[in-house]
């Protein structure tokens, strides 16, 4: 199968590597490719939208005419993993904890409201063990992470994190074939990439 990572900006290499390792661990033969043009979205069995700056990725996707094709691909049911900035791009409602409404380009397919930089600035970035429904316990790295302020069906929370200031916050969301995380599994685990590959292989 062909697996793509949106490669406009962000930790693309970390996702490529995580997909390669996940495929090897599952014994699935997968070609993992960078997606930088709209036509490279054709024929993908699974997709990852990486961490990065959501404003940068959104603006580039819009300028390069990828945004609409990307939305079509995610809506068509291709299993998708979106981490941090990726989750922001997928959300229907986005604001920033300090600046307020951002007006940035979005894919708007995930039934969730996201607050960017909700835990604070980089010095407030943290790691924690998080139990994820259907995936297991992972070491989660939250970097200038967003919070899913609310979700509505068919999207639902599949992981929470207890934070000293923010309280109990949603850390991951699933909506059908889309997994969205506020943290960065690509830095610590292949569990999420395996889940997406298994969805693509029709096993999950």
């Amino acid at each position: 199968m062909k697996v793509g990572v949106l490669a406009l900006q962000g930790d693309v290499e970390e996702h490529l590597e995580a997909f390669r390792r996940a495929a090897a661990e599952l014994n699935i033969s997968a070609e993992v490719v960078r997606v930088k043009r709209a036509d490279q979205l054709d024929g993908l069995s699974a997709l990852a939208i990486p961490g990065g700056e959501s404003t940068t990725i959104g603006k580039l996707a819009q300028r390069l005419g990828i945004l609409d094709r990307l939305r079509t691909v995610v809506e068509s049911g291709v299993p998708t993993l979106a981490t941090c900035a990726g989750a922001v791009l997928l959300a229907k409602e986005v604001s920033d904890a300090i600046v307020g409404p951002t007006g940035q380009p979005l894919l708007a397919v995930l039934n969730a409201a996201v607050v960017r930089n909700a835990y604070g600035r980089q010095r407030d970035s943290f790691e924690a063990n998080v139990d994820v429904e259907g995936v297991g316990t992972v070491r989660a790295v939250f970097i200038r992470a967003p919070i899913f302020a609310k979700t509505w069906p068919p999207a639902r929370a599949i992981a929470h994190v207890d934070h000293p200031r923010a309280g109990r916050a949603i850390a991951a969301v699933r909506q059908d074939h889309v997994l969205a995380t506020a943290f960065h599994p690509e830095l610590t685990t292949t569990a999420f990439h395996k889940a997406v590959l298994e969805m693509a292989a029709g096993r999950l």
């Binding site: 490669a7 406009l8 900006q9 962000g10 930790d11 693309v12 290499e13 970390e14 961490g51 990065g52 700056e53 940068t56 941090c84 900035a85 980089q122 010095r123 407030d124 970035s125 943290f126 790691e127 924690a128 070491r139 790295v141 939250f142 970097i143 200038r144 960065h184 830095l187 610590t188």
Partner: peptide, 18 residues
Amino acid sequence: EAGTVKVKVGFPAMLRNG
């Protein structure tokens, strides 16, 4: 929990290609 290596070395990875 905060200011760990993963958090500090992971942050610049999010700036890649930027």
